[in-house]
C-alpha cells in the first residue's frame, strides 16, 4: 500500500493507459504543454509525444464530437473539458452523439471515449462551479463515474478508458489534493458497485465526492451522540447500484441523500423516487435530501457556502431523522 493524491491517481491512470494501449489519445484545452489547468495531464506529452497528448482550441463541440468520431474509428480518446459545466456547452455532442450515435445507427459502432469533467465549486462563478452529473444520469447511452478516493479515481478511470462505451468521468476539484491509500495489485473496480464507507444501523446516507467527506465528518459527531449512520458511496451513477442502498435501507429504515448538484430532479430525486417505488415498506421515516437549492452558484465564498450542504446541516438533518 502507498499513499497518493487524487490528482496523482488520475495522472497515473492516464499514464498507464497510454502505456498499455497505443490507441489511447488525450486532448483538450491546455492538456499538452502545460499539463492541464489542474495539472492532471502533467508530464504526459513529454513522455508520449504530441501526437498522442495534445492541446486543442477552445471548441467544446468539436472536442467532444471528435472524440466520438475517433472512437468510432477505433481510437480510445480521453478528452478533457476544463469545467464540468461545459458538458452543457457541448450538449449535442455529449447527449446526442456520444449517447446515441451507436443506437441511432443500429449498433454499427462502438464509442469507447472518456470525457473528463472536473466539477465542483471553485469560486469561479455560475458557469464554472456545478456538479452536473444528474444530466448524465438522466440521459440514455452514457456511463457516469463519480470517484471519491484516490484508489477509486485511478481504478475507475482505467476502467473507463478500457470500456467500449462512452463514459462521463466527473473529478471533483476539491479532492485533487486529498491523499489516500492505494493498492497497486487490486483488481479494477467494476462499474455499478457502490462502496459502504461506514457501517451503521440508524440512518442510511448516500453521498459522493465532497459531500461524502462531509457526511463522514458528520458521522463522527453523530456517533458521539449514539447515532450510527451507514454511508454509501455509489462510485458510478450510471450504472447505479440501487441494490446496496436497498439492502441498507432495509436495515436502517431511513435514507438521506447529500449531493452537490441542484436539488430539483437531481440524483437524490431519482433515489427518492426509486425508494418510493421499491422500498416503501422498509422506510419508517420520510426520505430526505440535502442539495444545492435551485439557484445558480455565485463566485463569492460567503454566498457559495450559504447554499452547499454543510457538515452541520447533515448532522442536524440526521438528528431529526433519528429522533
Amino acid at each position: 500500500m502507498r499513499t497518493i493524491t487524487y490528482a496523482k491517481a488520475l495522472n497515473e491512470a492516464l499514464d498507464e493507459s497510454l502505456q498499455a494501449d497505443e490507441d489511447v489519445i488525450i486532448y483538450g484545452c491546455d492538456v499538452g504543454r502545460w499539463g492541464g489547468i489542474f495539472k492532471i495531464t502533467g508530464g504526459l506529452q513529454t513522455k508520449y509525444g504530441a501526437d498522442r497528448v495534445f492541446d486543442s482550441p477552445i471548441s467544446e463541440n468539436v472536442l467532444v464530437g471528435a472524440g466520438v468520431g475517433a472512437a468510432v474509428m477505433g481510437l480510445r480518446p480521453v478528452v478533457e473539458l476544463q469545467f464540468a459545466d461545459f458538458l452543457i456547452t457541448a450538449g449535442d455532442e455529449v447527449f446526442f452523439k456520444a449517447g446515441m450515435w451507436r443506437f441511432m445507427h443500429g449498433g454499427a459502432f462502438k464509442v469507447p471515449m472518456v470525457l473528463r469533467l472536473p466539477s465542483g465549486e471553485t469560486g469561479a462563478g455560475p458557469e464554472h462551479s456545478a456538479c452536473p452529473e444528474a444530466y448524465v444520469m438522466h440521459s440514455p447511452g452514457l456511463l457516469c463515474c463519480v470517484p471519491s478516493t484516490p484508489a477509486d479515481a485511478k481504478s475507475l478511470l482505467k476502467q473507463a478508458i478500457q470500456s467500449d462505451n462512452p463514459v462521463m468521468f466527473f473529478e471533483h476539484r476539491r479532492l485533487y489534493q486529498q491523499r489516500g491509500e492505494i493498492d497497486d495489485d487490486a483488481p479494477l473496480i467494476p462499474f455499478g458497485k457502490a462502496a459502504i464507507r461506514r457501517e451503521g444501523r440508524h440512518v442510511t446516507i448516500v453521498a459522493w465526492q465532497m459531500m461524502l467527506n462531509r457526511a463522514l465528518k458528520a458521522a463522527e459527531t453523530l456517533a458521539e451522540e449514539g447515532i450510527e449512520v451507514e454511508i454509501i458511496d455509489p462510485r458510478t451513477l450510471a450504472p447505479f447500484d440501487f441494490d446496496t442502498i436497498l439492502t441498507s435501507v432495509k436495515k436502517t429504515g431511513a435514507c438521506l441523500v447529500v449531493e452537490e448538484g441542484y436539488r430539483r430532479l437531481g440524483v437524490g430525486a431519482e433515489i427518492g423516487a426509486r425508494l418510493f417505488e421499491e422500498a416503501l415498506p422498509y422506510l419508517d421515516r420520510p426520505f430526505r435530501r440535502l442539495a444545492i437549492p435551485d439557484v445558480p452558484i455565485s463566485s463569492i465564498p460567503a454566498l457559495v457556502n450559504r447554499i452547499i450542504p454543510t457538515v452541520d446541516q447533515i448532522v442536524a438533518t440526521v438528528r431529526e431523522m433519528a429522533a
Binding site: I25, D51, N61, V62, V64, G65, A66, G67, V68, G69, A70, A71, V72, M73, G74, L75, P77, E93, K97, W101
Partner: peptide, 14 residues
C-alpha cells in the same frame, strides 16, 4: 462535422 474531425484524427494516426 465534429464527428468527421475525430474520424480524420483516427485515420491519420493509424
Amino acid at each position: 462535422l465534429v464527428i468527421s474531425v475525430g474520424m480524420g484524427m483516427a485515420v491519420k494516426k493509424k
